[in-house]
């Protein structure tokens, strides 16, 4: 089936060529952020080029610049202040890692005793051979033979879930997979969303009742896979190297596959509307879709997608 649509109509910006404010507001435009209440009053959004504060009283941080003794935002985002330092945290940005974050990444390179991992950050992350679980017991020392067969654990293109362990001096993050929940990913597909949409949650491993497991990486990579029972995940003696580093998928039935693609379409739709992702919202959206009984791909039709978003927003 082939459908042609029109380009979204361009908005006419000609009327806005000069910034105009309502006469009542005109005086407030240059509202100074000097007093602390302005900062305390919740997140303030800025546009690039917007006046923030005077540079004599404040220091400029990331996302700002100084012009004519004024601190001006250089990106669109939220204003943050630490003592006298004013920064703007951009809305659209690469992932800024913090220690303890859960991320999903893809191996880009195998190097001596380490893997390079693409984790949607500014630099590739590093996964040291010493920070993965080696086969044959968790507390085993790494051997020279392990160094020679690193590709049997992870090879280029492999997806993995890991935790940010530390930072190197150049700002690159170091990952570790020393937990039974971390490691290689299989039985599913990846969806990429802007990192800002994934919030820090109690748990980033979400199980939806439709037989789908979700891993919401804080870096905006989301892994959607077939549900694996908790008991199977652990294995008998706690660690089963065969299963952990396996490249083979389990048998996935049609219903699960449909559920996986449905969830991935829902995530893409929600991220297109720039709504933050949580397990609750996804669950709600999934139930709505099942209730409407629409096909998986129908979600990309304007009206249906909009209806879903409206119902999600109404819920608040």
């Amino acid at each position: 089936m082939i459908t042609f649509t029109s380009y979204p109509t361009q908005q006419d910006y000609s009327a806005h060529s000069s910034t105009k404010h309502h006469p009542d507001v005109a005086e407030d435009v240059h509202m100074d952020l000097y007093d602390d209440e302005a900062f305390a009053a919740g997140a303030k959004l800025t546009l690039p080029g917007e006046y923030l504060t005077s540079s004599q009283a404040f220091m400029r941080g990331h996302g700002t610049y100084v012009n004519d003794e004024e601190v001006i935002a250089s990106v669109a985002g939220t204003v943050e202040r630490v003592n006298k330092l004013v920064t703007v945290r951009p809305v659209r940005t690469r992932y800024n890692p913090e220690v303890g974050d859960l991320v999903v990444g893809r191996i880009t390179e195998v190097q001596p005793r380490r893997w390079k991992v693409d984790a949607h950050s500014r630099q590739d992350a590093v996964l040291m051979l010493s920070s993965v679980n080696l086969p044959g017991g968790i507390q085993r020392r790494k051997l020279e033979s392990d160094e020679l067969q690193m590709r049997t654990f992870f090879e280029e293109g492999d997806l993995l879930v890991a935790e940010v362990q530390a930072f190197f001096s150049d700002g690159a993050m170091s990952l570790h997979t020393r937990s039974l929940r971390y490691g290689k990913l299989r039985n599913g597909q990846l969806v990429v969303v802007p990192p800002i949409l994934v919030r820090r949650l109690k748990s980033h491993f979400i199980t939806l009742p439709c037989g789908v497991d979700l891993i919401l990486g804080l870096n905006g990579y989301i892994w959607i896979s077939k549900h694996v029972k908790e008991s199977d995940q652990e294995g008998e003696d706690g660690f089963d190297a065969e299963a952990v580093y396996s490249n083979k998928n389990d048998d996935i039935d049609t219903a699960t596959r449909i559920a996986i693609s449905r969830v991935s379409n829902i995530i893409q739709l929600i991220s297109a509307h720039f709504m933050p992702l949580t397990g609750a919202i996804l669950l709600e959206a999934y139930e709505w879709v099942v209730e409407q009984d629409c096909g998986t791909k129908d979600l990309f039709q304007d009206d249906l997608g909009d209806a879903l978003i409206t119902s999600l927003r109404a819920r608040g």
Binding site: R106, G157, G295
Partner: peptide, 26 residues
Amino acid sequence: SLSKAEKSYIQTGLLSNPPLRGDGRT
């Protein structure tokens, strides 16, 4: 680049009956 698991997931989906694609298209 894709991992082997992703590749096989996509290929199995395309060859299954009915064929299934990642975004629900036929």
